[in-house]
Amino acid sequence: MTSPQTPDNARRKFIAAAGAGVAGLGFTAIAPGLHLMAVGEANAAPTPRKAGEPANPAVRWGLLIDANKCAPGCTKCIDACHTENGVSANLPDPRQNSQWIRKIELVDRRPGKTRGHVTQLPMMCQHCAEPPCVDVCPTGASMKRADGIVLVDRHTCIGCRYCMMACPYKARSFVHAPLNDQNPEVPRGKGCVESCTLCVHRIDKGQQPACVESCPEGAMTFGDLNDADSAIAKRIASVPTTQVRADLRLNPGVRYEGL
C-alpha cells in the first residue's frame, strides 16, 4: 500500500496489445507509443536540473498531505496555486471554471467512534503511476513525464475530454473560454484540458510546488518517493497513509495521512 515503487505494468501492456491488435486489423504495422529517454542516474536531490538535462526517471515526485493539519476555512494552497498558475474563475456558470486544486470537506458517515468526524483536505491531480487519463487519450497528449508528473501536452490536445471521463478524482478541467492572463511559464488555453502540473516549472528550478510552500500548517510534504532517505518516503514508511481510490490500484503519487 505504501510502497512507492511503480507496480507491474500488466494492465497498460494488455490494453496496448489489444490496441495494436485493432490497429493491425486495418493496417500492417504498429509500434508502441513514445517512450521517454531513460537516463540511468543516481538519486536526484531537489536541486535545479542542469540545462539540457531531461527529467530523471529514477525520481518519482510525490506529495504527502496530512489531513489532520489541514485547517478548516483555510484556502491558502488554493490561492497560491491559482496565482502561480494564473487560474482565473470568472465564468457565469461556476461549474465551467477550472480548478486545479480544491478543498474537500469530508464528514464520516461510517458507523463507529469516528462517526460525524469532519476532515479537510486539498484534492488535485494525484499523479498516478498508472494514470487512466494517459491510457485513454487518443493523441497521447495526456502524458507522464519520466519523473512521474502527469501533464497535458496542449500542443496535441484536441479537447475531446475523454480523460475527464476517465479520471476518478475529477482532477481535470476543460478550459471553456478564451484566456489572456496566463503566467508566461504556465501556458493554458481555450479548448484544451488541464490539471495540476505539480508546478513542474518550479520543480525544474529546484523549488517546491506553490501549494506546499504556501501551507501555513506545514500539512504538505513534497519530495522523491523513490528516495528512501527523503522526508516524504521516510514519513510514508513510518505512518499509515492512504491512497484515494486505492481499490483502482492506480498508485497515485499524492498520499494522505490522517484519513
Partner: peptide, 17 residues
C-alpha cells in the same frame, strides 16, 4: 498564443475560485 502569454514580463494573478 492560444495558450502562451504574448506579453513580456507578464505577472499572472489568478482569481479565487
Amino acid at each position: 498564443f492560444e495558450c502562451h502569454q504574448p506579453k513580456a514580463g507578464f505577472k499572472a494573478t489568478g482569481v479565487k475560485p
